[in-house]
Simulated scan of single mutants.
Amino acid sequence: MSVNRRSILRTTAQLATLTAAGGLLTGCGQEAATGGGAAASEHPAHPSPTPGAPTVLTPNRIPAATPSAAVSGAPSAESAGASPSAPEQPPLAANTPAEVISGPSDRPQVALTFHGQGDPRLATALLTAAEQHGAKVTVLVVGSWLDQQPQMARRILDGGHELGNHTLNHLDISSLSADQAYAEIAGCADRIKALTGSIGRWFRPSAAQFATARVKAQARKAGYEHCLSYGLDPRDYADPGAEVIQRRMLGSIKPGSIVALHMGHQGTVDALPAVLEALQQRGLSAVTASQLCS
């Protein structure tokens, strides 16, 4: 072997070694968003529905994160006993805006959307009630809840429902910096993707009805082209009772309505069957947000 050929082979081997070492440093040295954190209030009167949840991260403690990064505490699809295949979704209408508040008013459909957190038994009872009435819902999950209840991701999708992103720790996202907001969105996206194979279509800002321009930009950066707002809020998080929730919903709901509701509240579970029966009597179908906007 000539001297030149030996030199080339030696240099190639050195480059391969350095490349491998660099990859290890990138994977192990990157700081990712942690999964702890109870939900901050959607509204001031809304308490955390998860007893014993870890302490909420304060904004200046939120590290940067990316949707493709390995996230500490995010369970894999295999560990949760789930297939990592992405759920199929209907294509959205071409005129779907960047922030959706309501759907078409000329179709007999409404979307019931849920803040995904709280006692998994109540969440399961709510999903079961919807399925018994032929309804499909959209659940915007808090990422730290998925750390505690990873099985709920597949339970939602396997029931024919839709799964979206409601940030990692449910902080007041409007008050966060761009990097902090991105970490909240991307941290939740990582958890959803690890469990289902997809980050989902929708992002809903935490502790806010509408997304600011900064939050919309960070949502797009994390892979969400559309934010999902709502036009009807029966304030079920305040636990006013099933009859009040029913009255507030049925008194205002109409074709195209997107309703904001919450898992983890017994009154919401109790109210849902009567609400769905009343909607059926009016000829209205409860569909996912994607179906409403397709």
Rank of each mutant, 00 (worst) to 15 (best):
residue 3 V to S: 11
residue 177 S to M: 08
residue 105 S to I: 13
residue 31 E to M: 11
residue 117 Q to W: 15
residue 212 T to E: 02
residue 162 E to K: 08
residue 199 I to C: 03
residue 242 A to E: 05
residue 162 E to A: 04
residue 256 G to Q: 04
residue 82 A to I: 02
residue 72 S to Y: 02
residue 249 M to T: 13
residue 31 E to R: 14
residue 5 R to I: 15
residue 72 S to R: 09
residue 160 G to V: 01
residue 136 K to T: 02
residue 235 R to M: 13
residue 45 A to Q: 07
residue 104 P to L: 03
residue 97 P to A: 09
residue 137 V to I: 04
residue 251 G to N: 05
residue 133 H to F: 14
residue 38 A to H: 14
residue 168 L to D: 01
residue 176 L to P: 09
residue 93 A to H: 07
residue 272 L to N: 00
residue 47 P to G: 07
residue 288 T to V: 02
residue 121 R to M: 11
residue 153 A to R: 12
residue 196 T to A: 08
residue 176 L to R: 02
residue 173 I to G: 03
residue 294 S to V: 12
residue 71 V to R: 01
residue 31 E to D: 12
residue 112 L to M: 06
residue 212 T to N: 02
residue 6 R to K: 15
residue 294 S to H: 11
residue 154 R to A: 14
residue 80 A to T: 00
residue 256 G to T: 03
residue 287 V to M: 08
residue 69 A to V: 00
residue 25 L to V: 07
residue 293 C to Q: 13
residue 221 K to I: 02
residue 26 T to E: 09
residue 207 A to R: 08
residue 122 L to E: 00
residue 170 H to F: 03
residue 259 V to E: 00
residue 143 G to C: 01
residue 55 T to W: 09
residue 225 E to S: 07
residue 68 S to R: 10
residue 134 G to Y: 09
residue 198 S to D: 08
residue 132 Q to I: 13
residue 18 L to Y: 13
residue 175 S to G: 09
residue 269 V to A: 02
residue 154 R to S: 12
residue 46 H to Y: 15
residue 251 G to H: 08
residue 109 Q to I: 07
residue 56 V to E: 04
residue 191 R to V: 06
residue 217 A to I: 06
residue 226 H to V: 05
residue 109 Q to G: 04
residue 275 V to T: 06
residue 201 R to G: 02
residue 36 G to K: 13
residue 127 L to R: 05
residue 27 G to V: 11
residue 214 R to W: 14
residue 82 A to C: 06
residue 69 A to I: 00
residue 212 T to V: 10
residue 29 G to H: 02
residue 251 G to D: 07
residue 229 S to C: 05
residue 102 S to H: 09
residue 285 S to Q: 11
residue 221 K to V: 01
residue 77 A to L: 04
residue 273 P to V: 03
residue 60 N to D: 12
residue 197 G to W: 00
residue 278 A to Y: 08
residue 95 N to E: 10
residue 64 A to R: 05
residue 277 E to Y: 13
residue 84 P to H: 04
residue 95 N to S: 13
residue 179 D to K: 11
residue 118 G to E: 00
residue 153 A to E: 04
residue 252 S to Y: 09
residue 94 A to K: 10
residue 182 Y to Q: 04
residue 41 S to H: 15
residue 16 A to F: 07
residue 217 A to V: 03
residue 27 G to R: 14
residue 70 A to E: 03
residue 55 T to A: 12
residue 177 S to R: 10
residue 188 C to A: 10
residue 55 T to M: 09
residue 58 T to P: 13
residue 184 E to C: 00
residue 166 H to F: 03
residue 246 Q to T: 14
residue 90 P to A: 05
residue 214 R to S: 14
residue 101 I to M: 15
residue 261 L to C: 11
residue 155 R to W: 06
residue 46 H to I: 15
residue 207 A to L: 04
residue 132 Q to T: 12
residue 144 S to P: 03
residue 161 H to I: 02
residue 149 Q to S: 08
residue 108 P to M: 01
residue 103 G to P: 09
residue 238 A to F: 05
residue 68 S to I: 07
residue 205 P to I: 14
residue 44 P to S: 08
residue 240 P to S: 01
residue 59 P to V: 03
residue 140 L to N: 06
residue 203 F to S: 01
